[in-house]
Amino acid sequence: MDSQEKSYIEIDPARCKGCACCVVACPKDCIQIGSEINQMGYQFARFAVRQCIGCGLCFYTCPEFGAITVYTLPRKGE
């Protein structure tokens, strides 16, 4: 992971059901549905475009538990 990026997300392929809610929620269009299929038979979402601002909207929209984790650099002073 490029440490120069302020934020990024990780999507757990094993938990994703490919509903694409995160794809719609992302204001920077960072997420795409891939072509691979996971063990549950779903085409899972991938973090594809590195323009993440760490807003967390994908995280809050996601109906699964822990499928998305959001990482960010600490703000100044932290």
Binding site: A14, K17, G18, C21, Y42, T61, G66
Partner: peptide
């Protein structure tokens, strides 16, 4: 198991998370 029993895109999981 790590996934819920809910259908893809169900609102329940979102609310559970909140």
């Amino acid at each position: 198991a790590k996934s819920s029993h809910y259908c893809p895109g169900c609102g329940h999981g979102t609310v559970h998370n909140l």
